[in-house]
């Protein structure tokens, strides 16, 4: 079997295994709470949430209820029925919470569905865990103090992704920098500064896409065949590379691969007509440079040795590179200006 075929087979197998699990049913809360024949003469008393889950007032581990309760109505079939039900979603985390205290509050009048809305919808098991914004409606004091550990266990905080407050969905990844500058205290509850640096500091020899191959939900931008398509990405989102990378970072790789303007005997990756008198030509470098000078900088940013200066300095054949209306507050005697404006 070819390696490629083996990979495809592996992916299909994993997907197939995952899809079969989605078919497992959840507990039919609706049928038990609203459709049972109960409460009339000759019928058993109608069940409520407390019928099965009363123990949760004192013991939060008792989420599923006692299977013995099923036996009252289902008899011998209860064990088989119970085993067919998909276990309740634990989300692999817990919050510090007292059911007993909350159920005694006047606002809840002993009702579970005030928080666990949607529990009677068949097959919507995830809904039984109330959203965080429901907690915030009353407990916003802890949030204002950037204090998450009053509800969350510290060890859970690293694994949690907010779903209803400071949601990390939508365009959050793209705009998280603007959020972070305003909510640093909130971010710091879960994230260390070195977590920021692991993505934003480019001196590391290993990218997160290699370190975290299992994080398939994380929007790591350098995944897949990034090396091949990096030029497309750079041109598509001009200036985005420069948010994290200095031109010298790009050039260190280009030097090694012999496509940098700073390497002797380097290959010229540019098409015919790139340099020359035909400034209006389709392939002329001026057009590309005006569009995204940061791409040029990836190979040609070398201070006074920048090869663009040879033609574009004052009196050179390349003419004035500054666009019309260009201005600068710096002195004409600044060292960088003097690269071209030789007195």
């Amino acid at each position: 079997m070819k390696p490629l075929h083996a990979w495809l087979l592996g992916c299909i197998t994993v997907l197939a295994l995952g899809c079969t699990e989605l078919l497992a049913p959840g507990f039919p809360h609706r049928a038990h709470l609203t459709e049972d024949r109960c409460g009339k003469p000759g019928q058993p008393p109608c069940p409520s949430c407390a019928t099965c889950h009363d123990e949760i007032r004192h013991d939060r581990e008792q989420k599923r209820g006692d299977p013995e309760l099923c036996r009252r109505c289902h008899g011998e079939a209860s064990e088989e029925l119970f085993s067919r039900v998909r276990p309740w979603s634990h989300k692999r985390t817990e919050i510090i919470f007292s059911h007993e205290t909350h159920l005694e509050l006047e606002a809840f009048v002993g009702q579970c569905v005030a928080c666990h809305t949607g529990v009677t919808k068949d097959g919507v098991e995830g809904e039984v865990f109330p959203p965080m914004k429901l907690c915030i409606d009353c407990h916003d004091d802890g949030l204002r103090a950037d204090e998450c550990a009053s509800c969350h266990r510290p060890r859970d905080l690293k694994r949690l992704v907010p779903e209803t407050f400071l949601r990390h969905d939508g365009a959050f990844f793209r705009n998280h920098g603007m959020v972070a500058s305003r909510n640093e205290g909130v971010c710091a509850t879960c994230h260390a500064e070195s977590d920021c640096v692991r993505c934003h500091a480019q001196g590391q020899p290993l990218g997160l896409k290699t370190i975290l191959p299992e994080a398939i939900d994380r929007p790591l931008i350098h995944r897949g065949d990034f090396v091949a398509r990096h030029a497309i990405e750079a041109r598509s989102q001009q200036g985005e590379c420069a948010r994290c990378h200095q031109p010298s970072f790009c050039d260190s790789c280009h030097l090694e691969r012999g496509v940098s303007g700073q390497r002797q005997g380097a290959l010229n990756p540019h098409p015919i007509g790139w340099v020359g008198p035909d400034a209006g030509g389709r392939n002329h470098h001026g057009r590309a440079a005006r569009r995204d000078i940061t791409s040029c900088a990836a190979c040609h940013d070398a201070g006074p040795a920048t090869n663009c200066i040879r033609c574009h300095r004052v009196g050179g054949p390349g003419g004035n590179p500054h666009p019309s209306g260009w201005s600068s507050l710096r002195s004409p005697d600044a060292p960088m200006c003097r690269y071209c404006h030789v007195p």
Partner: peptide, 18 residues
Amino acid sequence: VPALMLSRQSVLSVFSTN
């Protein structure tokens, strides 16, 4: 403006402001 993402010490930062 991509050119302004470059360091102002880069000579290329004054070449284009498209």
